[in-house]
Amino acid sequence: MIALLPGWRARRRLLAALYVGVAAIFILAPLAVVMIVAFTSASFVSFPPPGYSLRWLAKVMGDAAFMRPLLNSVLLGLAAAAVAAVLAVPAAVAIGRRSVRWSAELEAFLLAPLSLPALIMALALLFFLARFGLATSGWGLLIGHVVITLPYVLRTVLAVQRGLDASLVEAAHVLGATPARAFLSVTLPLLRPGIVAGSLFAFLISFDELAVALLLSSATTATLPVAILNHVAHNYDPAVAAISLVKIVLVIVVLLTLERLYGLDRLMLSRVRRA
């Protein structure tokens, strides 16, 4: 029986490698086209490009019309993810424990922003916030993105919470930890994979969000998706392919830095069970 194990494991590895290979082709094929177009020397998008150059990369990286929105989007994404996590994680803990009455109803309510179409949400939020003079202040943009991203953090944290052993938290209580201490030193580390995944979702959603950003941003707070939409509406050049490449490189750098500094495993894993 034991002797069979290595063979089985090798087969599983081979299968996994094969699967990842096919998935990588599916995921990367359309993106590779865009990456190649980003290096075109022509003024128009075409494939394969007639020649190669760095002119579009140089153009977008030196163009405040793209770089300021890129910075805005990064900051807004971080801020929205942070606020959404601060609001959603405690709520998920409350719901997941089922110690709260109406936990099912609470969950439904907190997930409800997922079900309202973004266009309607954006327009209604614009009219709503305009009454308080918040519509173009930058706060409106953050509020809108927190409303949209909160359910993502909530749902992923909840998923992890439900799979967890409640007895660990109970044990902390029994051992005399105050609720706050138990929350900080037991519950939070256990929920880490859910918090990381949820915050990542929140960032990605905010980073790519268009409807709310279109209506609630101003000239100074315009985000990258807004800049890109307004660029492609009346221009047809490879700048948008180049800016996509810039984003991809940015994310690779961030991932590598996180891996070096913290180790992605540690960031994404539950802390407690390793201790």
């Binding site: 990842v20 998935a23 990588a24 995921i27 990367l28 094929a29 359309p30 993106l31 590779a32 086209v33 865009v34 177009v37 998008v45 494939f47 990542l200 990605l204 980073f207 790519d208 998706p225 890109i228 492609v232 948008v240 392919a241 800016i243 996509s244 984003k247 991809i248 994310v251 690779i252 991932l255 992605l264």
Partner: peptide, 20 residues
């Protein structure tokens, strides 16, 4: 693997469509 997963989200939909 994580990068591979999120890469599509980083390429704006209109140029992604050109890729397709």
């Amino acid at each position: 693997l994580l990068f591979l997963l999120v890469a599509p989200l980083l390429v704006t939909v209109v140029v992604r469509t050109f890729g397709w």
